[in-house]
Nucleic acid binder design. Structure first.
Lengths: 343, 343
DNA sequence: TATTAACACGAAACCGTTTTCGTTGTTAAT
DNA sequence: ATTAACAACGAAAACGGTTTCGTGTTAATA
């Protein structure tokens, strides 16, 4: 077992100083050709690679970015993660992934742990609990210490930083409008508890679309499910007793579940009832019938978030002077039409 | 903006030495009560937290583990990742996630990058290309440098290290046996190119089960699809022209796709044809009909891999002496029966 | 009173680099 | 012969901690 070799060992072996070795390896022309070649040959032979930790300590840059997401077994977040990882990779950054599990405490702990020098910046989506508590002190402190932060999807106005979101309101509006244009009158909404920022925005889009098209808002057409709802009883009775001809779901899991229940109740899709979901993942594509869905372009979102973060990190290097400026990028959602609606 | 405070600054401010501050913060009883309290109060006031990088440099431990997986937008890997992350978290480790994208080169580059001090050990599943090339020098070198490594799922006999896998052969055997016991005679296999170790093992289990039950191996009943097959034409003709009454698929995506095609061709599931897939993910649960599936217990796999790795890392601390010993943990796959087979 | 032990603290080495700033020994210019 | 310039290298500081090993005071002991 050959442990990694260090500058010091090379120096001792070749009877030169550490500085000479360091310079020779960077082709400094302070060092003679002879010595340089000798050192480089030796280094190559022993597979010398500088120690990242030592480099980080010196440069105060880790080339790591921290990503905190509420859940990893979740198509949308996974997609965003991939976008982040891909972009980060091209820029030579590594990604440290933390899962908050929708827990406020885990979010706080993980953030504080990573903020102590392990990373150069954060990308995150708020946990459900954090949004519920409305407590963002950990984010504010992190920013205050000069750590760049980009929020995506699950954001908040309380924290001033770079953000990247989709136009949830407009997307929901657009989806509902399509259903109305298709002649649907009784359009249901299947959503989560309202403290989830994005769900709420989608609900608003739903309300507005109904209003603009002179459809009454019927509370009995709104089904609110707990975030990760395994039990299907609530939805069962909803579909059995409610007279509806279209359904908008705030995610694809709710949508596919709902479709199954509707089908069990003898409803034909899309003839009797049309479905549109959010999150255009693999479920939407492979459901029967295939689900018309609002694509959130997670991968692009991740890429943009990573780009914003890295730009800020590397700008901090250059110019300390200029005033901080924060942006919010809005990604346009797209409606992908499939078999669960008519076109 | 208050940058993080360091020991040196505290020392200067309080007119004591750096060592005194360091000791006081660890409640060393070398330091008087008075001084200790004064220092701790000051440190608390300024939110002092030791710099992780400096600690790592000193201790030669990063408390980071590197995870390299071929794909993150993939239910099984995501699940394993969650298991790793969860266990690592309880032990105070962070996870650096790299996606090889099934590319040999990305795998090599990422490994070499991380191996230079950024992490204490690796957990990985081999990329398809790596398995195809059968080139494992990067793994061997990493191990040779004393870096612990745990392989999961996509493993190889060429590399001697800790491993965790499921009993693919037996699982496939068991699945096919169930189909046979249900009276199926013409059982198809939908699989990937054979260089994927796990697919091959599953195929072997399939062959053996047929053989043991005196069913002939009919090559026309085997469909090999490229790894991420988007085009459905090949499968279309397969299901249209082949006379079969059951299908075993090596993953759930193939299974759900196949079911759709079969249904389009007027076949009833499970009456006319039964389906069993591998990877018991969300697709299996929400497909119509729900898919009978071999659960690979990814989360447990991740947890076990993380446990093995961290044990090895922390044992390395204690005893350098004793001989290395490597284990291979086999996780028992489970057949989850749903609507796509009769029971 | 001289010796010793306990106490409270500081100096310095160390982890592995980079980088600035000498310090030599030659060589060319005066 | 003297000096300036240059080439080639080393010493040391710095990054932010931990830890070992002094060292000076004071109090207890012989």
């Amino acid at each position: 077992m050959k442990k990694k070799i260090t500058l010091k060992q090379i120096a001792r072996e070749l009877e030169v100083s550490i500085s000479t070795v360091s310079k020779a390896l960077k082709n400094s022309r302070e060092i003679s050709k002879d010595t340089t070649e000798k050192i480089q040959a030796f280094a190559k032979l022993y597979h010398y690679k500088p120690n990242n930790i030592a480099l980080s300590l010196k440069s105060r840059r880790t080339k790591n970015i921290g990503v905190i997401i509420p859940d990893i077994v979740h198509h949308f977040f996974t997609t965003v993660f991939r976008g982040i990882e891909q972009f980060a990779d091209t820029k030579g950054y590594n990604v440290i992934a933390c899962v908050s599990d929708e827990s406020f405490e885990k979010e706080v702990i993980n953030m504080e742990l990573l903020a102590n020098g392990s990373i150069d910046g954060f990308i995150m989506a708020l946990s459900a609990e954090t949004q519920l508590k409305n407590d963002f002190h950990h984010l504010k402190e992190t920013i205050d210490q000069g750590m760049p932060l980009v929020l995506f999807d699950r954001v908040t106005d309380e924290v001033i930083c770079d953000k990247v979101v989709i136009n949830d309101f407009e997307a929901a509006y657009m989806a509902v409008k399509k259903l109305i244009d298709d002649g649907r009158k009784r359009i249901a909404l299947v959503t989560t508890e309202s403290y989830l920022n994005v769900s709420e925005k989608r609900a608003q889009g739903y309300y507005q679309a109904l209003k603009d098209h002179n459809l009454e808002l019927d509370k009995s057409l709104i089904l609110r499910l707990p975030y990760q709802f395994e039990d299907e009883i609530m939805s069962e009775t909803f579909f059995a007793t409610t007279n509806l001809d279209a359904v908008l779901c705030v995610n694809e899991i709710f949508a596919v579940r709902s479709m199954r229940i509707a089908q069990r109740n003898g409803l034909r899709i899309p003839e009797d009832v049309a479905f549109i979901g959010f999150t255009d993942g693999i479920l939407s594509k492979l459901a029967t019938p295939a689900l018309t869905s609002v694509a959130q372009h997670g991968e692009r979102m991740g890429e943009i978030a990573a780009r914003m973060l890295i730009e800020k990190i590397e700008r901090d290097d250059e110019k300390e002077l200029e005033e901080e400026t924060f942006r919010t990028e809005v990604i346009e959602a797209t409606l992908i039409e499939r078999e669960s609606t008519i076109n």
